[in-house]
Design a protein around this nucleic acid. Structure first.
Lengths: 153, 153
DNA sequence: GCTGAATAGAAATTCAAA
DNA sequence: TTTGAATTTCTATTCAGC
């Protein structure tokens, strides 16, 4: 049993059961034939970023902790990279193509950021139009998308 | 010093400092003139839903835990209640007015849910059009908004 | 109800080993 | 680098008192 396998199992167990202590988790692992000790589980929990929560009223349990400290711009950039399929500038507008059903997601984020170069956005299912005041402003937006899409990370 | 005041202070302290143990938190409170013991802090931490996290690499610290287990429909409902200002049915379409910049948020959620009664959505800054196949489908969507807006909670 | 002192219980670490 | 045994450290609870 490799460490990574054990840690995968731990994630599954805490997702499907209410585990209050490391001892409990240990027993569940042993039921599945995994041999380990509390010390090891403690290290696993740290590496997996699990936290003990007060599961709203009834008892504590371990859960996965996700840190949502992303800025709106971080979110926009990662969303652009994952859902935008094409982007084209047409005079004072940028026409962005996305995966089906994702245009509004981009729209919501762009509206949130309030780019000064964008005066309005209209989104359908898989297309969003970004309207600028001038061709120059539109060009800046086009370059923004170009930069984001070029980022490899 | 009332309990609620102490708990407010605790939130402030853990937001502005990296607190690794209850002892540490206790000292910070004492510096601010609050008299309490570890037992009390332990209870406060539970009530405030704080968790000990592995602050990405460098050390553990207490942070506020927010549970993001809302379904998309829960999110849509709460978003509708907070940003929709008007909704009207016009034949096979519903025209939804929102607070400025929030139309796309509604659009993204509706697209995500994939209502069978909605064949397409187009959102601008503060208006979103929900297009149905028939007047009857549009009526169902209208009633959905009606129900959500009527909910008092 | 809220709290502190003491204690039980749980989790992290040290140390040694493989 | 990963692990277990033992230990330390930290946290939750009990119990008494307010």
């Amino acid at each position: 049993m490799k460490k990574s396998e054990r840690q995968m199992l731990i994630k599954q167990i805490i997702l499907n059961n209410d585990i209050a202590t490391q001892e409990e988790l240990l027993h569940q692992l042993q039921d599945k034939g995994v041999k380990a000790t509390q010390a090891t589980i403690s290290r696993d929990i740290k590496e997996l970023n699990l936290v003990k929560t007060n599961n709203a009223g009834q008892g504590v349990k371990y859960t996965i902790y996700q840190n949502n400290q992303m800025t709106v711009e971080d979110k926009l950039n990662s969303t652009i990279k994952s859902v935008v399929t094409a982007y084209n500038i047409v005079q004072f507008m940028n026409i962005i193509a996305t995966l089906p059903g994702n245009a509004h997601v981009i729209g919501a984020l762009i509206d949130d950021i309030e780019f000064p170069e964008i005066v309005g956005t209209v989104a359908g299912n898989d297309t969003i139009i970004l309207i600028s005041r001038t061709n120059e402003d539109a060009q800046l937006i086009y370059e923004y998308f170009d930069n984001v899409m070029a980022d490899s990370d």
